[in-house]
Structure formats: structure tokens, C-alpha cells
């Protein structure tokens, strides 16, 4: 299927949004609720499924929509068409602090596997599917669960994750051990497995959990420095209204659980 070529620009540093330029007749798909603004001339259209099967039957659409439900997204995607005469822009904003990364699927060989919920927007024609993590250990302990999102196509896609996003290139056979939960996306040629930290002592007191994610090349991987759950956990711990304790900023042990234990409030 012919992809729409989109030009884009990413604004902001830690709470970013991406502005996508659409030529007349071009379109982009976005997560429902992800749109920030759009210029006059852009028509918003909500479609059932991911909008990639334009002439697919009802059942293929239904299946696509069902898969989207499984990944925790809405049943509908929003398609933004440029119905005007000139170039028009539409912007999509990231839902929490982090970075937006542009991914050219064509360069990756057409497929990107990413953690669910990380999709922000893409050129129309990119299909949003699911990939089951069939390695039981990885599904249970890999931090991403059993369901991953699969982006197929050869256009641009924009993926969002928490903190700083880093793209790593793994040479053939190169191994990178990653904290579970920090893996955002990877090329299908990358092998994703888990490994026990090795020592019970480190598992219990190392603070990194019982398993690493082990990524083995070749291929590209994207890592996030701050998974949203970790950020949320810290916020709750520090929020008195949610049962946490407000810890003074200058305190020596002023953060996290230890601070919570010591300051008796």
C-alpha cells in the first residue's frame, strides 16, 4: 500500500509535541485524544480500527478494532486528512513527560515492535497490530507484558515514551542488559529475552528486580530512561493526599521508601 510521506517537526524538550505537515490529499492517523491542534483545512475523521485497511471487509475491520482493544487503546482511530489546497499542519502531543521519536519504518524493514500505548501518530497506511510475546518468562517478568504493539508499513511513525529516549544500535551478537520496563521498541531482528540477575542478594537488595531484559543484536532498540509507572510511583509516594509523605527537598534521605520509613508522618 502506498504510504503518505509526511514532513514533521518536533517541538519542546521534555514535554514534546510533534507537528506533522500534510500535503493536499495526505493523511495521518493518530491515537484518539492525541491531537493537540490542527490548521484549517484538515478534516478529522474517526474510523473503526486503525485506518490501514481502506477497502477491507467489515470483519477485517472488526478484527483490527478488537486487537486495538487488547492493546488497551480505543476502538477507533482518528484520521486527519488535508482537504485544503496547500500544505497544512496537525500536531500531536505526548501524554506525559518524555520524548517523541520519529521512526522511519521503511529503514527498519517495515516492522517495529514497541510497548503497548507508546504509539502517538503515523502516516496513514501504517497498520497498528499486536504481537504476542510468546516467551513466557519475558511476558511475565520482562516488564512489557504479553502484548506488544506492532507497527507495519513503510512510512513514518511517532512513538512516545517516558524520560529520555535513547536509540541504540546493536551490532550482530552484541548484548545489552536493560532494566525491565525500560524497553520501548525494537526491530524484529533483535532478540528480547530475560535473565535472572544471578545472585539472590542482588535480586533482593540491588533494587533492580529479579530479572534483566536481555537484548541481543543485530538491530535497533529504543530505551526509555523513566517508565511512567516508576514516575507515578514516586509521585504517589511523595503525595500526602494519596497516602504518601511530603518529604523535604533538602533532606539527606529525602526520597522514596527509606525517607518514608524514617520521617514518621
Amino acid at each position: 500500500m502506498a504510504m503518505d510521506v509526511v514532513d514533521y517537526e518536533i517541538f519542546g524538550s521534555d514535554m514534546q509535541y510533534v507537528e506533522v505537515e500534510l500535503d493536499p490529499g495526505e493523511a495521518a492517523v493518530g491515537e484518539a485524544g492525541g491531537m493537540m491542534y490542527m490548521q484549517d483545512g484538515i478534516q478529522m475523521d474517526t474510523v473503526f480500527g486503525d485506518g490501514s485497511q481502506q477497502q477491507g471487509g467489515f470483519f477485517s475491520k472488526l478484527l483490527g478494532a478488537g486487537k486495538r482493544l487488547v492493546t488497551g487503546e480505543g476502538l477507533f482511530t482518528t484520521v486527519f486528512h488535508n482537504e485544503g489546497n496547500g500544505k497544512r499542519r496537525v500536531a500531536f502531543a505526548a501524554p506525559y513527560p518524555g520524548k517523541i521519536i520519529p521512526v522511519n519504518l521503511a529503514e527498519l524493514g517495515g516492522t517495529l515492535i514497541c510497548q503497548k500505548d507508546s504509539f502517538l501518530c503515523a502516516a496513514k497506511g501504517v497498520s497498528l497490530g499486536i504481537a504476542f510475546q510468546k516467551r513466557l518468562g519475558v511476558g511475565l517478568f520482562g516488564g512489557e507484558g504479553f502484548i506488544m504493539q506492532k507497527l507495519d508499513g513503510d512510512g513514518m511513525a511517532f512513538v512516545h515514551a517516558g524520560g529520555t529516549l535513547v536509540e541504540k544500535t546493536l551490532r550482530p551478537g552484541e548484548v545489552l542488559r536493560v532494566d525491565t520496563g525500560c524497553v520501548v521498541a525494537f526491530q524484529p531482528s533483535v532478540d528480547f529475552d530475560i535473565q535472572f540477575v544471578g545472585k539472590i542478594k542482588s535480586a533482593l537488595f540491588g533494587g533492580e528486580g529479579f530479572f534483566y531484559a536481555v537484548l541481543q543484536g543485530p538491530g535497533q532498540v529504543w530505551l526509555q530512561s523513566l517508565p511512567l509507572s516508576r514516575l507515578a510511583n514516586r509521585i504517589v509516594l511523595a503525595a500526602p493526599a494519596a497516602g504518601g509523605s511530603s518529604v523535604g527537598q533538602g533532606s539527606l534521605l529525602g526520597a522514596g521508601v527509606l525517607g518514608g520509613i524514617l520521617s514518621d508522618e
Partner: peptide, 22 residues
């Protein structure tokens, strides 16, 4: 290799380094 071990990766070593055909 790959998500479900569904890929076959053929690797060989040359003077430049390791190549993989996936």
C-alpha cells in the same frame, strides 16, 4: 532469534567483524 524465535539468523565472522543475515 527475534520475538518468537521465528527468525533464522546466519552469522559469520570476517576481518571487519561479525555479519548477520536475518
Amino acid at each position: 532469534r527475534g520475538l518468537d524465535a521465528d527468525q533464522i539468523q546466519l552469522s559469520w565472522t570476517t576481518a571487519e567483524g561479525v555479519f548477520t543475515f536475518s
